[in-house]
Design a protein around this nucleic acid. Structure first.
Lengths: 202, 202, 202, 202
DNA sequence: GATGAATGAGCGTTCATTCAT
DNA sequence: AATGAATGAACGCTCATTCAT
C-alpha cells in the first residue's frame, strides 16, 4: 500500500510499525472510524501492547500529524534555501514543486495530516498547527516579495496564499500509477499553475 | 451555525431537522465520529425515532451527499446555460464563480459531500458519483473548448480540470465572517485564478 | 406454508390473518424471536394496527395456544365418544390416532402449543393448562380402565400416560410430504406402538 | 439448579461459568429470549467480558449444543460397546436406558440441545447435526438387527426409530424429585416401553 | 380499522483503556 | 515488551407499545 512514512523521522521497530498501521487505517477510515484493535491487528500485536508504545490512540495520530508537518516544513525550508537568491518566481516554483512532491511521495500521510487534525486534542495539535503556520508564512513571504518587486500581480495576496497553498492538498487524493504521470510532471504543472495564479511575468 | 441546506430540495419537518443535525455533526466529527444519539439529541427526538425517517445512519449521510451533489449540478448547469453563447473564458469564469459560491453558501454541506463520500456504501454512493462526474465533465468541456479556440493555453488539460475543480473545495473550509470578504469577492478572485491557470488571454 | 389453523375456531378477517402469521413466525423463531413488526409485515398491516385486534403480542400467542388446546380436546373427546362402548384397546387406539392426526394436520400449531406455553403469562396460560390436563386425564382413564379389565399390563401407569401422550408431539416436528407416508399410516403405526407399550393382548 | 454440565468436556473457569449460565437461561427462555446481559449477570461479569471468551452469543449456544451431542454419542457408544455380543433386545434396552439416563442427568442440556438447534447458524450446527445422525444410526442398526434375527417385529422400522428415539426427549422436561421415581426406575420403564414397541419376544 | 410518528428500554456488539501476570 | 481478561461506556439498531390523526 501507500502507507509510507519519511525515513529518519519515523521511529524504528514496533513503534514504527504501529505508526504505519495507524497511517493506513486513519487514511482509509478516519480517526474515529479506525480502532485500536484494527491497528494492533495489522501490526500483529495484542491491542494492549500498543499502550506500551503510545499512551493513547490520539497520541498515535498526533505522532503521524507531527511527522507530516515536520516533513513538510523540512522540504519547504530546503526548497527555500536552494532558491534564496533567485527571483520570486523561481522561489515560488520551488516551494510549490516541493509541496506537490511531498504529497505525491506521502499521499496517505498528507491525507491524514490534513483531514484528521480536527480529531486531535488541542494540546496535541498545537505543535503541528505552529509548523503549519510557518509553512504558510513561507509561501506568503514569497508572494509578497513578488508583489513588491512587481514580478507578481495580485489583487488579494492573502487569498492567493490560500489558493496556491491548497493546490498540493488535492494531489494526495488522486496521485498514483493510474494517473500515468510522473511525480515530476505533476509538480512542474502545478508550479506553472501557481506562477500563473500569481500573475507572474517572465 | 453554518448547518444550512438548500431550500426546496431539503425535506420538511423532522426529516429535514435530522438532515441539518447530521450535517452539523458529520462536518464536525466525520461520519464515523458522529453518533446517532448525538444527531437525535440535536433534533430533540429519541434516537429510535430517527429510524422512522431514515433506515440507517448511512442513509442520512447519503441524503446529504445527494443534496450536495444535486445542488452543485443545478448551479453549474445554470451557470453554463447563462453563458452558453459566450467565450470560453466567460464560461469558465461563470462555472468557477458558481462553484465557489456553492461552497460559500453551503460550506458544511460541501465539506461533508467531499470528504465523507468514502464512508458511503457503494450502492448509496453511486448516484452521487454520477452527478460528480457530470460536473467534472462540464468543466472539462469548457477547458477543451477554450483550448480548441486558442483562447486557453494548457499543457495538460486533464490536470487543469482537477486543479481548477479543486479550488472551490478549499473555500468551504475557511469561508466565514472572519475572512472579511464577501462571497462575491471570493468568487471573483477565484474566477480570476482559474482564468490565469487556463492561460486565458483576453 | 403449513401455517394452517382449524376452521370454525379461528376468527375471520384480519384477526385470523394475524393469528396465521403469528403461528408461522412463532413456530419458526419462537415467541421471543418473532417480532410484532414481522407479524404485521406478513399480514400486510402496520404494526400499530395489530393492537386494534389484540392487546399485546402475548395475547396473540395465547389465542393460538388456546385454539391448539381446544382443537386437541375436541378431537380427543370425539374419539372417546365414538368408542365409548368399545374395549380399552380400541379406546386407546382411537385416542392415539386422534392425537397423531391432530399433529399431522396442524403441525405448526402443535409446535407452538407445546413449546411456547412457557412464554405465556401465567394468567393467559391457565385456561390452556386446564385443557391440557383434561386431555391427559382422558388418556389416563383409558389406561387405568385397561389395567382394571386386565386388558393392559403396566408396571407404572403414570409413566405410561406420559410416554404415550408424548408420542404425538414428535410427529409435528417431522411430518410432511418428504416422509412418504400418509397421515393415516402414521396414525395407525403410532396407535400400534401405544397398544404395545400398554402391553395389550388381543 | 439443574444447570449441570458433563465434567471433563466442559471448559474450566469463566468460560465454563458462562456456559452454565447460558444453559440455565437458554433452557428457561430459549435462545432468543435470553440476553447476553442476563448471562453475564449470572456469571458476575460485565457483558463485554463475555466476548473475551466467546465471539458471539451464538457461539455460546453452539458450545452447549456441541457438548450435549458429544455426551449423547459417548453414552450411547458406551452402551453399545457393553452389549456388543448380546441379543438385539439387550442392545436396544441398553441404548434406551443410556438415552433416558442422559436426559435425567442433564435435563437442561437436553432441552437446549433439542429445541434450540434451529437457532444456530448452519455452520455452527453442522458438527452437532452429524453427531445426532450418528446416534440415530446406532438405534436404527439395532432395530434392523432385531428385525433380521426375527427378535423384533416391526411394520415400519423407520417410524420406530423416530418414535423410540423420541422417548428420551420428553423425560428431560419433567424428570425431577417431584416425580418420586429414581433415574434408574424411569430408565428401566422406558427400556421396557421400547422393547414392547419393537415387538420383542423374549 | 388503520396509520406514521414517537418513545424508553433493551438488544448484541465494539470501543479505548487498564491491570495482573 | 507482551499478553489475556476485564471493564464502563457507547455504538447502531430493534423491541413492544402508545397516541393523535
Amino acid at each position: 500500500m501507500g502507507a509510507v512514512l519519511p525515513e529518519g523521522v519515523t521511529p524504528a521497530g514496533t513503534r514504527g510499525r504501529i505508526l504505519k498501521a495507524g497511517l493506513e487505517l486513519f487514511a482509509e477510515s478516519g480517526f474515529a472510524g479506525a480502532s485500536i484493535r484494527q491497528i494492533a491487528g495489522i501490526v500483529g500485536i495484542n491491542s494492549a501492547t500498543l499502550y506500551a508504545h503510545y499512551p493513547s490512540k490520539g497520541h498515535v495520530l498526533a505522532a503521524l500529524v507531527r511527522i507530516g508537518h515536520e516533513e513538510m516544513l523540512a522540504r519547504l525550508t530546503e526548497a527555500a534555501a536552494a532558491t534564496r537568491d533567485d527571483s520570486a518566481g523561481r522561489q515560488l516554483a520551488a516551494l510549490v514543486r516541493a509541496h506537490v512532491l511531498l504529497h505525491t511521495d506521502y499521499p496517505l500521510l498528507a491525507v491524514v495530516t490534513n483531514s484528521e487534525l480536527h480529531a486531535l486534542a488541542p494540546e496535541l495539535a498545537r505543535t503541528s498547527l505552529e509548523l503549519r503556520e510557518q509553512c504558510r508564512r513561507m509561501l506568503a513571504d514569497v508572494l509578497e516579495l513578488g508583489v513588491r518587486t512587481g514580478e507578481f500581480s495580485l489583487d488579494d495576496p492573502m487569498l492567493a496564499v490560500t489558493a496556491i497553498g491548497g493546490l498540493g492538498v488535492q494531489v494526495a487524493q488522486w496521485f498514483g500509477p493510474a494517473l500515468h504521470r510522473t511525480r515530476e510532471q505533476v509538480a512542474d504543472q502545478y508550479a506553472q499553475f501557481a506562477l500563473r495564479m500569481a500573475g507572474a511575468h517572465r
